[in-house]
């Protein structure tokens, strides 16, 4: 997915709804928050042209990728909740890509990216699909 060309992305963006609200992609959910937020101690990185790997599947494959036009999105792996992966703030639309789930488009704003959990005896565990 990291080698996805700009044209591929443009082609996808024509079909992907860009939304402001809550959206889920498999075992991840994107939660809009009244932003911008700047948690203390958070280390922000600019999302590079090849994107940011948010989460790899079970043992390496099926990665959830965050992609944005250069200079329009920053990401921090800050976790306010144990299920969180981090937070991104975008000034233009950004996309979450995954090889087996449809892409999500997020309108400019701030979002928390969170993982899904499952119940098991004595507690919860994170889902890896």
């Amino acid at each position: 997915m990291t080698d996805m060309s700009v044209l591929d992305q443009v082609e996808q963006s024509l079909r992907i709804p860009v939304l402001e609200g809550l959206q889920a992609q498999g075992d991840l959910i994107v939660i809009p928050v009244p932003g911008p937020i700047d948690p203390p101690g958070a280390r922000w990185v600019r999302v590079p042209p090849e994107g940011v790997e948010l989460l790899r599947g079970g043992a390496g494959g099926n990665t959830h990728m965050l992609v944005a036009e250069p200079g329009t999105c920053r990401w921090t792996p800050h976790r306010a909740d144990w299920q969180d992966l981090g937070v991104f703030t975008a000034s233009a639309e950004v996309y979450l890509l995954h090889p087996e789930h449809g892409a999500l488009g997020c309108a400019p704003g701030t979002y928390v990216v969170r993982r899904q959990r499952e119940h098991e005896r004595g507690g919860s565990r994170l889902v890896a699909d």
Partner: peptide, 18 residues
């Protein structure tokens, strides 16, 4: 909703799932 740490009310506002 619980699987994502959200309430029923929050989860019912899910716009899209892929």
């Amino acid at each position: 909703g619980w699987t994502y740490g959200l309430s029923a009310d929050q989860y019912s506002r899910l716009l899209r799932r892929t």
